[in-house]
């Protein structure tokens, strides 16, 4: 399998810890997944709502760039950010289904000397770790089993919806399996894919806060001592606003929220700084086996 890594903007900004930990985990697992040269914005959320066609063209440029790297096997493009993953998948599906869009995109790519034949596979790292690398290999890489760590696996809204490419839409399992393989206990909880508030937290703050609060509250109630996420925006909403939630709802929430790759890195015995643990606002030290 030939991989390329598409970080997307968040992983170079607020989600820096996701980027650092993911690259470290690739390295630990002996995966060759270099960064896609010359990548641009995936066209997500804001762009998609303003001008869908242009957003698609942007997304397609990344795919076209990745396709140039095709060897005898097609490239698997790893998109860790949930929004990037969704948009890149969406453009693939729309191009396959709608001829007129395919033409528009082909023309815009042509204008910059590119073309795209649809051969690249867009993959989420959860999918790659569980289905390509395999849980056995991951177990073998664990040097510090996460004993006592109770993880609420939070997938967010975009990784399995609307395209359930590798996991169940309503009750996804891959992250739970991964956490169990690391020696942690995946907590059974019902809100794995419920919205974190998304951009609402930045616009209608109270509504957004409430949605994040519901998730954190339920995860704590189910006995979780850490929450694992697969999306930079979810992580940001769930972690950075816990102080504000305390003020708004009069309820003290103090639950570390880490990228699932950081938790993997911890179990693999990687140095805290390499997996960006110092970047978290709610210290993970409180959680067992994470110190």
């Amino acid at each position: 399998m030939r991989y390329l890594y598409y970080p997307g903007c968040s992983l170079k900004g607020t989600g820096k810890a996701y980027d650092e930990s993911l690259v470290a985990v690739f390295d630990k697992l002996g995966m060759d997944a270099k960064e896609l040269p010359g990548w641009n914005c995936c066209g997500a959320t804001a762009y998609m709502s303003v001008d869908e066609t242009k957003a698609f063209a942007l997304a397609a440029r990344n795919l076209a760039l990745a396709e140039q790297e095709n060897g005898s096997d097609p490239i698997h493009l790893i998109a860790p950010c949930a929004a990037c993953y969704l948009v890149l998948n969406k453009v693939q599906k729309y191009m396959a289904e709608y001829g007129h869009l395919r033409e528009v995109i082909a023309n815009s790519l042509k204008a910059v000397g590119l073309n795209y034949h649809g051969t690249v596979k867009v993959r989420h790292p959860l999918d790659v770790f569980v289905n390509d690398i395999g849980l056995d290999k991951i177990k073998a890489a664990v040097s510090h089993p996460l004993k006592g760590l109770k993880v609420a696996s939070y997938y967010g809204c975009q990784v399995v919806r609307p395209y359930a490419e590798f996991d169940d839409q309503y009750n996804p399992q891959t992250m739970d399996q991964l956490m169990n393989a690391l020696g942690a206990d995946a907590v059974d909880w019902p809100l794995k894919t419920r919205c974190c508030g998304g951009t609402l937290t930045g616009t209608v703050e109270e509504a957004g806060l409430r949605m994040s609060y519901i998730l954190l509250k339920e995860a704590s109630k189910r006995g979780a001592n850490i929450m694992a996420t697969a999306c930079p925006l979810c992580q940001f909403n769930l972690e950075c606003y816990q102080g504000k939630m305390r003020g708004t709802f009069g309820d003290s929430i103090d639950l570390p929220v880490a990228f699932f790759t950081q938790i993997m890195g911890r179990a693999f015995g990687l140095e805290a700084k390499r997996i960006g643990l110092q970047r978290l606002f709610v210290p993970v030290k409180a959680a067992p086996a994470m110190a």
Binding site: Y170, P190, L191, I214
Partner: peptide, 8 residues
């Protein structure tokens, strides 16, 4: 939409 044991 769903059946859940999530109590609000």
């Amino acid at each position: 939409a769903e059946v859940t044991d999530w109590a609000m």
